[in-house]
Design a protein around this nucleic acid. Sequence first.
DNA 1: CAGAAAACTTGGAGCGTTCCAAGAAATGAC
DNA 2: GTCATTTCTTGGAACGCTCCAAGTTTTCTG
Lengths: 352, 352
Amino acid sequence: MNKSRMPTLADVGRVAGVSRGTVSNVFNHPDIVRPDVRERVRAAARELGYDGPDVRGKVLREGKFNALGFVPPGAYSISEFVRSPYGRELILGAALACDEARATLSLVNGTADSRASAIREALVDGFLLGQSLDIDLITSAQRRRLPFVIMDSEAGPEISSVRVDGRAGALMAIRHLAELGHRKFAILSVQRTFGPPIVHLPGENRRGHTTSRSQFDLERLEGYAQGLREIGVSIDDIPIVETMPGDATAGGAVLDRAPDATAIVTMSDWQAITLLDEARRRGIDVPRRLSIVGFDGTQEAARATPPLTTVAHDIVGKARLAARMVFENGPPRQVLLPATLEIRSTTAPPCR
Amino acid sequence: MNKSRMPTLADVGRVAGVSRGTVSNVFNHPDIVRPDVRERVRAAARELGYDGPDVRGKVLREGKFNALGFVPPGAYSISEFVRSPYGRELILGAALACDEARATLSLVNGTADSRASAIREALVDGFLLGQSLDIDLITSAQRRRLPFVIMDSEAGPEISSVRVDGRAGALMAIRHLAELGHRKFAILSVQRTFGPPIVHLPGENRRGHTTSRSQFDLERLEGYAQGLREIGVSIDDIPIVETMPGDATAGGAVLDRAPDATAIVTMSDWQAITLLDEARRRGIDVPRRLSIVGFDGTQEAARATPPLTTVAHDIVGKARLAARMVFENGPPRQVLLPATLEIRSTTAPPCR
DNA sequence: CAGAAAACTTGGAGCGTTCCAAGAAATGAC
DNA sequence: GTCATTTCTTGGAACGCTCCAAGTTTTCTG
């Protein structure tokens, strides 16, 4: 194999009898080099097997990478993220913005502790950060002094973010169910620490139910609480079950703990679909015996059987906007996208 | 804004009263620096707002990027690629291998002409090339002298590739249909040039039907031809319709041209699903009046209604293997993955 | 307390490029 | 044929880092 050093601009210049600078011009601004010199340089390059300026030198000199770094939310590895329907839509949005900007989309790897160092070393001009509890990621991104935008979280007026109005969305879900006549609810919430599902039943000490959660989750819970208040129900009087994202037992856990709920609201379509599957397995008729509302409006929600009623928003558009904001690198702003209630076939009046 | 120059190793060294090299060691090998010096250096770094070695210098020096470049097949932009079910599974496979290697996955942008230059400038240590007609991409990749693996194409013994045995798969499809009793076929093939669907009817000049195609397509067609020969049918006697990938009119085009076919084989699940949709729209009962076989075995095929019979293979595994081969950078090898026939609900005996 | 050994630090070299001011050569005008 | 213009070419200066052989300081040993 060709183990010997690759030729450089200087080598080509030496052979062609010109300077480095001229060789550089032949490759980058051929028009300003006299034709005969240009040809001589090209011949020398061919002879040496030199295939144009090396990117490493260019990067050092220019300081730009022409790439957007996408850091998955939470502790997702990039493959987990690609696998999740929600993640795929975010990636699609980012890809659209990268197409426009003719930039590369880099999916930055590294879980947990190595995440921060991955951010430190990513060869990108800016970051798109998925929602994360971890303030470290934000400071890592800030240290790079590169533009970055956070999705699905808000981190104050100094930091750009794009997120959906989870509070309003959650409120809509409850109002819809209340209008249908539901009064017995349960909440399938998300757990941000590792472990088996956490269950909060009415009457127990509910302190825990706000500590381990991200602002992202809290907002949605607040929306649920407000909706419930409007019909005279306290959120403290209804069962809340928290499960890890991707936990396939989520559905069973909430059905066990809230057997007489007529409507269950959730924090994601994924959870709702798990629940839907479990309900079917148990012979519970959805929506006649049980109404279920998802959250996010992924494509999966529309394809579920029966199609899932969900608090939807434009996920692709969200990521696209966020990515554009990174490329634009303007002053910080916080964008709140509207949620809409997509009423499909998993909600109906409760049977009495 | 802080427009002034970012501090460098040398600046920190100057303030701390040590050399560049020592500052570098403090960040990269803190253990070999005396604790008091280490602290002094760290203090200086804090004071100057220096956040660790800049990646650009590191890259120039080390020559490594710690990233895998994924170049989408054909003329796909990265967003089109992310959007397609097949592309998503490939990306997932590549992401799995990147997780293992703790590398970044870079989706390399650039359509058509800019594709080659994108390859030239990508900040990656190796490439995964999607199937492509374009020999330019291969030479571009070769010029970088970086390891690369081609998926879904074969480019000789010098170049590593991973692909599915399309010939055997196509043969299985025809044998399956023949066994069910089918004798009247049509082929929905893929068109690799821009334009409206191309139709080849029996008796016409069929010369064109092998020119514009990639080896990828030809192989599958050969499998179909062989299967047909086994039951005494010449591929020249059956209608072939070529449509562009993603063309939603594909289904209609073939139904119009081959009204009496009882079985239609295709080159992709996507095409087959289009066809399925169009058949439903026209009130053609699948599989009773018409059998349809897809190709690839994407998740979409299983979810179609009715679930699609398809020539399946492990798409995720293919990309994962290909990506691992890039990371391993061993001697060139050509891997041929087996295809399996996934019999679902779009094939049945023809009604007579 | 000298001398040897160990532990740490230094500064030059090199990675490959682009930019730019200044110098050189070619061209044109009279 | 000289001088003014225009058109190219040059080589130094960055860019920011890591490696490494050589040098310096500290610690240890007898």
